[in-house]
């Protein structure tokens, strides 16, 4: 039997995997790496190191950035420099102690040392000023938006240098939602102009410094952005929804990029979930997509589900169908 890591490589390089890559089995997330602050549970709120206020009201599924006039960090994009602050929490070596301990215990024959990044570049722009302001600014104040994006890109590069020095990750799992279920937030041209160059810079830097695998999360439609994803150096697009026609994408781009997802969190991860529903979704997508360039996974990303047991049930069904199909 191949190790989880070998099996992944066979799958994304078009070799001979001996089973489906089962969700995140080839990744070990090092969540101890210093990140900016986030809400810890319902009923909490926190202002993070960027000055963004996050609120998680009781009874809600997750946190939300607060964007009323008072709490938007950037109130006028042309004056963005006056509003932003750049965190430096990660520059203190002590912040890395726990992460380093964790890394020592990772069996690198089985798993990649993985760092998950949130927010992505686009997400940072709308966390700072709200989605509407951020999207309109791409048209109305393109120069200021380019500057803002460069500022965050520089931060990500500075962080990358320290990260590489401190723990030397072998996989990067970048979060940045680029669309809704049926379309991208912006046109592929706008995306290319504003976001491709920065990601290309960051991902190339990682690849030149020991990172073997770049995963990108966008649980949305984004088929029209795949050429840009390939150009920026993404190896695996995680979160791919079935609204993308995944088999067609595999046919067209397999070998250049692989697709991870196909099991919609919204359709299987809810309070009344059961095994039969999960089996149906797992079977359908695995049979449609086949053995290469595809990794069955919940679209939401990371190794969790909103409702207890769902993630594990999906893993069990993938194991079962692997035995049938391989």
């Amino acid at each position: 039997m191949l190790t989880a890591k070998q099996n992944l490589q066979e799958t994304i390089k078009g070799g001979k995997p001996d089973r489906f890559v089962n969700q995140n089995e080839f990744l070990e997330f090092v969540f101890e790496a210093p990140m900016t602050s986030f809400c810890t549970g319902p009923g909490t709120e926190i202002e993070d190191e960027w000055g963004i206020l996050w609120r998680w009201p009781e009874g809600q599924l997750g946190p939300f950035p607060v964007h009323d006039e008072e709490h938007k960090v950037i109130k006028d994009i042309t004056e963005w420099k006056q509003y932003v602050k750049t965190p430096d929490h990660y520059k203190n070596p002590e912040a890395w102690i726990e992460a380093k301990e964790h890394v020592k215990q990772i069996d690198q024959n089985e798993k990649y040392i993985t760092i998950m990044f949130f927010p992505g570049i686009f997400e940072m722009t709308h966390s700072l000023m709200g989605m509407e302001d951020a999207l309109m600014a791409l048209y109305e104040e393109p120069e200021a938006m380019h500057e803002l994006i460069d500022w965050y890109t520089d931060y990500l590069l500075d962080y990358a240098k320290v990260l590489i020095e401190q723990i030397g990750p072998t996989a990067i799992y970048q979060h940045d939602d680029w669309g809704s279920q049926i379309s991208t937030f912006m046109s592929p041209e706008t995306f290319k102009e504003f976001f491709l160059p920065s990601y290309k810079k960051i991902f190339s830097f990682y690849k030149e410094n020991g990172v073997e695998l770049i995963l990108h999360h966008s649980d949305s439609y984004a088929a029209t952005l795949v050429p840009s994803m390939i150009e920026m150096g993404i190896d695996i697009w995680q979160g791919v929804m079935t609204t993308n026609n995944i088999p067609a994408l595999i046919k067209e781009y397999g070998g250049k990029i692989s697709f991870m997802g196909g099991i919609h969190s919204g359709e299987v991860d809810f309070p009344e979930w059961n095994e039969a529903i999960i089996k149906e979704h797992v079977d359908r997508i695995c049979k449609k997509c086949g053995q290469l360039y595809f990794i069955p996974n919940l679209t939401q990303g990371a190794d969790v589900s909103s409702f207890p047991g769902v993630y594990e049930a999906v893993t069990a069904e993938i194991d079962r169908i692997s035995k049938e199909m391989f």
């Binding site: 509407e132 999207l135 309109m136 791409l138 048209y139 991208t184 937030f185 912006m186 046109s187 706008t190």
Partner: peptide, 14 residues
């Protein structure tokens, strides 16, 4: 029809 996207719609409405 997917010819334009959210930003174009926002600026038109504005």
């Amino acid at each position: 029809a997917g010819e334009i996207f959210v930003p174009e719609m926002l600026i038109a409405a504005k």
